[in-house]
């Protein structure tokens, strides 16, 4: 069996979290080197704070100060920290009940070595040098009782926190798609016919109408017909081309389902439904196992295809 193709997929965004009244006060407190807990109707003090009382379901309104020192309730040890974790050297994770609180907070403990970690150990907050209203204003916890005093109030209440989320994946194709991509790297468009409905798909895939893999290989032309299109005039996040540009559905000769692609090389307002187009390939030296080998499509100058020839593909 042919090996599948795989490539990295990275996603990243700095999420902006609006906090609301309870978490906003909690984060404002952290910025000012204070830890606030929320008091529920049963008198218990929760750190991290609860926004709603789990018993009465009412919004929690009362927040009270707790101590920057506390006791480890449970712990584990990390020899090889992962990207984004509080410390980049071996550290302990711990559930820590701060003095004055009834519940425990999860955070990192900079204990140096596993041997120093134990249930019941006393720890204190090590504050970040640049607090701004974020759970990471607590850089980590450290063994012992001494903690820095609260700072002067640092200004406006915190209402939003920013959280970067970066994840790395490996994206894997099917063997059929891999074969299509390898052909593409040779400048050829490979389709496959569904054994049940006999329709030709580019790229090859499991036939979405019949739920079986397409099998029989069919060469597909790089010429086709624009079935429909839109002119993109709007800029948006993640965009790769400067507007305006035309994105069209193109029914390649020999295929039974249109593919989306760009029509470039003529003014956007001259693109028409039924227009005949052909693929424009990048320089051969740039070809890889990627659909980007085809830069865009360009009109061939042939007469337009009659509407009846593509109306069932709209």
């Amino acid at each position: 069996m042919e090996t599948v193709l795989a490539a990295p997929l990275e996603i990243g965004f700095d999420y902006t979290r609006s906090l609301g009244p309870v978490l906003g006060r909690f984060m404002t407190g952290l910025r000012d080197r204070r830890v606030l807990g929320s008091r529920t109707a049963d008198g218990r003090i929760h750190v991290p704070p609860l926004e709603y009382d789990p018993v009465t379901h009412a919004p929690v309104t009362e927040l009270v100060d707790v101590q920057p020192t506390g006791t480890v309730v449970s712990w584990t040890w990390t020899d090889r920290p992962l990207d984004g974790q509080p410390l980049d050297r071996p550290f302990g994770w711990a559930l820590i009940r701060l003095d004055g609180a009834d519940t425990a907070l999860l955070h990192a403990v900079d204990a140096g070595s596993r041997d120093r970690m134990h249930t019941g150990m006393r720890v204190h907050i090590r504050w970040s040098s640049s607090p701004h209203g974020h759970i990471r204003d607590i850089e980590c916890f450290a063994p012992g009782e001494t903690a820095a005093a609260p700072a002067e109030s640092g200004g406006d209440p915190v209402t939003i926190m920013t959280t970067p989320i970066r994840l790395a994946y490996t994206h894997t194709t099917s063997p059929e798609e891999g074969r299509y991509l390898r052909e593409l790297a040779e400048g050829r468009l490979l389709g496959q016919r569904c054994p049940v409905c006999r329709k030709v798909y580019v790229p090859p895939r499991v036939c979405p109408a019949d739920g079986v893999p397409t099998e029989e290989e069919v060469a597909v032309s790089e010429h086709g017909t624009v079935t429909t299109f839109c002119v993109v005039n709007v800029p948006f996040a993640g965009q790769r081309l400067e507007p305006p540009y035309v994105v069209a559905q193109i029914l390649l000769d020999g295929a039974d389902m249109p593919i989306p692609h760009l029509i470039l090389g003529l003014p956007a307002d001259e693109v028409r439904m039924g227009m005949r187009v052909a693929a424009v390939w990048r320089d051969r030296a740039e070809w890889t196992t990627s659909p980007t080998n085809i830069a865009h499509f360009l009109p061939t100058g042939e007469p337009d295809a009659p509407y009846e020839s593509y109306e069932d593909h709209l």
């Binding site: 991509l181 993109v232 709007v234 996040a237 993640g238 790769r240 994105v247 692609h261 196992t289």
Partner: peptide, 18 residues
């Protein structure tokens, strides 16, 4: 949302239309 919906998996054509 436009960012989240335009995450482009490898081996696909980057036809960003929004």
């Amino acid at each position: 949302a436009m960012w989240a919906l335009s995450v482009q998996p490898p081996f696909t054509a980057p036809i960003g239309a929004g």
